[in-house]
Design a protein around this nucleic acid. Sequence first.
DNA 1: TTTATTAGCGGAAACGATTTAGACAGTGCT
DNA 2: AGCACTGTCTAAATCGTTTCCGCTAATAAA
Lengths: 336, 336
Amino acid sequence: MVSLKDISVRCGVSVATVSKALNGHKDVSEATKERLIKAAKEMGYFPNSQARALKTNRTYNLGVMFLDEAGSGLTHEFFARLLNSFKTEAESAGYDITFINRDMGSRKMTTYEHCKYRNVDGVIIACTDFTSQDVYEVINGDIPVVTIDHTFECRSSVLSNNEQGIEELVEYAYSMGHKKIAYLQGNKSAVAEKRLKGFLRSMAAKGLEIRQGWVLTADYHNPELTYKLTKKLLENDDRPTCIFMPDDYSAIGGYNAIKDMGLKVGEDVSVVGYDGIAYATLVSPKLTTYAQDTERIGREAAKKLIALIEQPQTTFHEVITVGGSLVKGESVAKIN
Amino acid sequence: MVSLKDISVRCGVSVATVSKALNGHKDVSEATKERLIKAAKEMGYFPNSQARALKTNRTYNLGVMFLDEAGSGLTHEFFARLLNSFKTEAESAGYDITFINRDMGSRKMTTYEHCKYRNVDGVIIACTDFTSQDVYEVINGDIPVVTIDHTFECRSSVLSNNEQGIEELVEYAYSMGHKKIAYLQGNKSAVAEKRLKGFLRSMAAKGLEIRQGWVLTADYHNPELTYKLTKKLLENDDRPTCIFMPDDYSAIGGYNAIKDMGLKVGEDVSVVGYDGIAYATLVSPKLTTYAQDTERIGREAAKKLIALIEQPQTTFHEVITVGGSLVKGESVAKIN
DNA sequence: TTTATTAGCGGAAACGATTTAGACAGTGCT
DNA sequence: AGCACTGTCTAAATCGTTTCCGCTAATAAA
């Protein structure tokens, strides 16, 4: 690979001058600057990122921390889309992405140690267990961090407007005439809490009764469990007319349960999802759901993280809330 | 961060000795080696990956190159699962993953230049346009490469057994009594060619007629187009009893087309997919498909790539074929 | 005893970049 | 002329490692 030195000998200047010319410092004349930049281009020069990082302590690498278990993480559409937009935004600012997990090869290391080893400039934490030791270490470390859908003291985060999303869904279901609404919530997390809160509040605001046994705890991204719980909800004679699923993916389990009981989604039983994944508009009947703006969540997270890295003095910690939008499908029946 | 020097002063030895002790060289006594390792552990030492890379020219980073357009790449279940297992295998060997694309920040660079800039030790190429200039540059460069589902001269690749997969599906459809089979193929690529070849061959072997207009070119991962083409296939009076979809995801479009025409999947019209994504078993009726072993494909690719990197002399280029398995769903009717 | 060998360790250069401090020449001012 | 100042450039240190080579002392061989 061609180095600064190669350029310097060819042009008869010092390495320092080449470096400054290429980095746009002012103490090098316009003439030589142009000459050097031209030479660099001709010779196909690219800075050695490792050497630069060694000296400047800036790698232009961002760590991505997420739950890395089988069936999780990358294969979650929510996370995949989030990562995609985060990556796009980061790249346009010159940053690459590194997955941060524990246990690199033979060496046992924690996530935080992995960050230090790779010297990432910042970390984004998403779709993980925010109560874990690994997260704790990173949050309390000295690396800029942005969390998704969970907020820590003195750290920045990007939140989907979970409370409002559910409220809009309740509002919609109510407007369609539903009063007997059941709620399957996701596994314990800040997100699940927010959504439940939104649900309970808007139900109360509408004067709707929250039945005993109609608020159940399922899992996110678990159609099988949702299948079972949906069946359970429908077994009794007095059953809900509308069921809120933990998320769109799980809702498929709900669909199947309803069909298997000989009922029709969107006619006998109404269903509401959450997320706005691609399948929501492909299933039949189309799922009514609240589409999170994952594209913007990822973008905002990247922007904030890069701001924290590049302007640490003038950037403050904040909680950024990103709104979504109600998607009216065909899964909620009009009743009276 | 604690460096070799810190350890050396604390233990009263030279930096060189510490380095050699930690890297298991032989010219350092067992006693001091143990002492130094212990000290390193106590002080929380981790090597600075940049410094090491600078000196050794090994970053322990693998580049991942894939089609990075909207709606592609990360959000493809096939790719996501592939990446996941590739990543797991790579990490267990001490490698991290870097996404390689063009245009880092303001600097225009090609994918290959990006590789050079980040000094990745090897590259895996998947789910992309293999005829592009970007791929060409990388293939003809001096970085170890493994390609997925496409083979280049003198390069290693991991292939899914596409030909055989289709053949098994034809075999199955035939065994269920189907003779009038239509085939929607994916967009132009080595994979599409292989599958088509498998289809034509096994149809011929069974003495089945390949009707004019029953082999159409659709897209991978495009339910909308598949929807249209499926309708087109079913519009005529003399219609196929079984349709092969480009992939499972697109098959959803096919399902919808069939339903929208007032027909029933798995009764009036049979449907076959390809991939074995999670949704295949969630849709109703369950999709009959050929499940690619993405988990193994990713693992094999990582293994091969790392072998090429670490034992360049004794590793030869090869084409690794990974088998899949037929998944009998409910979407193929028994007819006579 | 002398010499050759070896084990164990350290010095120093190198990787490729950035950055500080200073050299040098030219300019303008008194 | 003497002085300060400015613009342009260079030398050298530095980041944290690895590695080649050489040194010392101890051991083995003669």
